[in-house]
């Protein structure tokens, strides 16, 4: 009898990620191509759709992007692995590693975003329409979680303001609310906490219109993995991470401040504004410092910057406000 560990896979035998993805893409194209040519008489498009349901939107699919002047420079990017396996997405479990394991069932195609409330006319946008609405930009942003950890993420998207213009909000719309996908059968881990679903977040209109606020479709130049909020999410880099709602299904324009999930859960801990602010402590920990993800334990600690370092672009939004009161 042979006792002992089977030999591990030698590094030389591991397919590099690029090659693996290319092979997938080749197969997908080949299969749908063959189906299309061979089966014209049998409703080829349908067959191709069945064989390759989400071609073009699978996580990992490359996106066409352009450079952006709004990108943050001079920071070491957090690795793709850490960005995609260390997530807060409580619908898929409360532990950081859980969303990457559990979010596979999130149906990112077909996907629509409803626009409602104080708009000229309620509309529904298909994800494909959203993807084509404006050139997709590469935007590196610092990402600061309220739990005092941080990352540097190369997002892909365009300014939310471009989308809001298409929504034609009325002049009395002062706030915008984002609602996330919720289905307790797909997201059965959502009962691990006592949160009311669906997840809701919101911004003041001028915050939403700030060019930094990103309607986000991808990261690292590729379609968002489900656990990062596929197929479309918000990223607000000067606010704590929970303000950046994931997997958006509805956008509502309102004249009053909307109810938002964490603010409802614990208003003393999570303010509606939740701007990154080292001078206002979370009741349970200091916000003066943060731990950068992916570094060795002795090198993680760093100083937290006011507005997460985006003060030049956003400080003027809060000129007349006491940020200790409106935390």
């Amino acid at each position: 009898m042979l006792i002992g560990k089977p030999p591990g896979i030698p590094a030389s035998a591991i397919t590099p990620r690029e090659q693996y993805m290319n092979r997938r893409r080749f197969l997908r194209t080949a299969i749908s191509g063959a189906a299309a040519t061979g089966a014209v008489a049998f409703g080829a498009e349908r067959i191709a759709e069945v064989l390759s349901p989400s071609a073009g939107v699978l996580a990992g699919t490359k996106l066409q992007t352009v450079k952006s002047p709004l990108t943050t420079t001079g920071e070491q990017l957090t690795s793709y692995k850490d960005v995609t396996t260390y997530n807060n997405f409580y619908e898929f479990g409360v532990q950081k590693y859980q969303p990457a394991m559990n979010a596979g069932g999130l149906p990112t195609r077909p996907w629509t975003v409803r626009v409602e409330g104080l708009v000229k006319k309620p509309k529904t946008f298909d994800i494909d329409t959203l993807l084509k609405m404006h050139a997709l930009e590469d935007r590196v942003y610092r990402h600061r979680c309220v739990e005092a950890w941080s990352m540097v993420v190369p997002w892909v998207g365009y300014s939310l303001s471009e989308f809001i213009r298409q929504c034609e909000p009325l002049s009395n719309a002062r706030y915008v609310q984002f609602l996330s996908y919720y289905d307790k059968h797909v997201e059965k881990w959502s009962s691990e906490s006592t949160i009311f679903w669906p997840y809701s977040e919101g911004l003041r209109m001028d915050e939403a219109m700030n060019p930094l606020t990103l309607l986000t479709f991808g990261l690292y130049g590729e379609v968002l993995p489900n656990q990062n909020g596929a197929p479309v999410r918000i990223v607000v880099p000067w606010k704590y991470g929970f303000k950046s709602a994931k997997s958006i299904v509805a956008v509502r324009f309102l004249d009053k401040q909307p109810h938002t999930t964490w603010n409802d859960m614990a208003p003393n801990e999570y303010g509606f504004y939740s701007n990154v602010n080292p001078n206002v402590d979370h009741p349970r920990w200091s916000q003066k410092t943060e731990r950068r993800i992916g570094l060795p334990f002795y090198a993680q600690l760093r100083t937290t910057l006011m507005f997460n370092g985006y003060g030049d672009q956003v400080a003027s939004l809060y000129n007349s406000m006491d940020l200790k009161k409106y935390y």
Binding site: D82, T85, Y86, K96, W149, R291, I293, G294, L295, P296, F297, Q300, L301
Partner: peptide, 11 residues
């Protein structure tokens, strides 16, 4: 170097 993404929190 295998303590996960946030070694401090893991410890």
């Amino acid at each position: 170097n295998n303590l996960g993404p946030d070694p401090t929190a893991e410890i």
